[in-house]
Simulated assay, not measured.
Amino acid sequence: MAATTVTDSGGVRIITEVIPATDPRAAQLTSGSRPSTAAGASFQVKIFRRAQPKVLGTIHIFTGIIHVCFGIILTASEHRNPSLPVASGILFWLGLLLLVSGSLLVESEKRDNILLVKTCCVINMGVILSTLVATLVHTTAITRNVPGCESNMPFQLKPEWCFNLETKMLSNGLDSIFVIFSLLEFCTAVAALAFGYDAIKQHKYTNMAL
């Protein structure tokens, strides 16, 4: 049974009613307060979706597959004298990171989950740092000689293929392409992080208002 208290204050009568947990009206009040929280979270996710996360995720997945495939091919062809990108393994771990980031971005297009948005922000911060490292590695590889052609001794004989300029041009071309991919991935990750941060910030304001 509900307990009712009547208080008179300054010509105003205040009636306070305490509803027990077993009262059906308590369940209605509880269920009525939930949609507002869910609606708030859904609104924040909509802010993140203005960045078109499905498109950004597709870019990361596509470039991630390219990194892994070229990593396998170059590792198999350069197993004796691996180049700097192959020796560092950057093609593999950056490719896997891009696949994870892309999958999360695509999934965030389907679910109204602010926690998923936060996870995308964390992963994309890793992508930003990784693409900067990848750019540095590929740029350094362009400035170095072809693996196996370094002159460590004054009268060291170089293999015949070291004098073929097409080998170095092909190597530089591949590294240049990966630098372009890294810049594309960097811009994509920055866009996802910017909109994700905006959504998380608005989510905090919504929680305070509630």
Score class of each variant (00 low, 15 high):
203 H>L: 07
164 N>L: 15
113 N>E: 05
125 M>I: 09
6 V>A: 05
6 V>L: 10
184 L>P: 03
52 Q>T: 14
207 N>G: 12
95 G>I: 03
67 H>K: 08
7 T>C: 10
73 I>R: 11
1 M>V: 05
118 K>V: 14
167 T>K: 08
9 S>L: 14
27 A>R: 11
156 Q>K: 07
19 I>S: 08
157 L>G: 10
198 D>I: 11
201 K>Y: 00
141 A>R: 02
175 D>P: 14
98 L>V: 00
168 K>G: 09
47 I>N: 07
180 I>K: 08
199 A>Y: 02
34 R>V: 13
76 A>R: 12
175 D>A: 14
137 V>I: 15
35 P>D: 00
123 I>E: 04
210 L>T: 07
170 L>V: 13
103 S>R: 13
126 G>S: 13
102 G>F: 03
3 A>P: 09
104 L>R: 03
92 F>I: 07
207 N>Y: 07
78 E>V: 07
180 I>V: 15
200 I>T: 14
38 A>L: 15
141 A>S: 11
117 V>T: 09
185 E>C: 15
91 L>V: 03
6 V>S: 08
205 Y>P: 09
59 I>Y: 00
23 D>M: 02
105 L>N: 04
192 A>Y: 01
147 P>A: 05
87 A>P: 07
170 L>F: 14
142 I>P: 05
192 A>L: 06
138 H>A: 12
172 N>H: 04
43 F>N: 13
103 S>F: 11
168 K>V: 15
153 M>H: 04
84 L>G: 04
204 K>T: 15
192 A>K: 05
163 F>T: 12
92 F>S: 08
11 G>Q: 05
168 K>Y: 06
206 T>V: 11
13 R>Y: 03
187 C>V: 10
89 G>M: 08
147 P>G: 02
191 A>C: 13
7 T>N: 11
59 I>C: 06
97 L>C: 07
29 L>F: 05
91 L>K: 04
72 I>N: 02
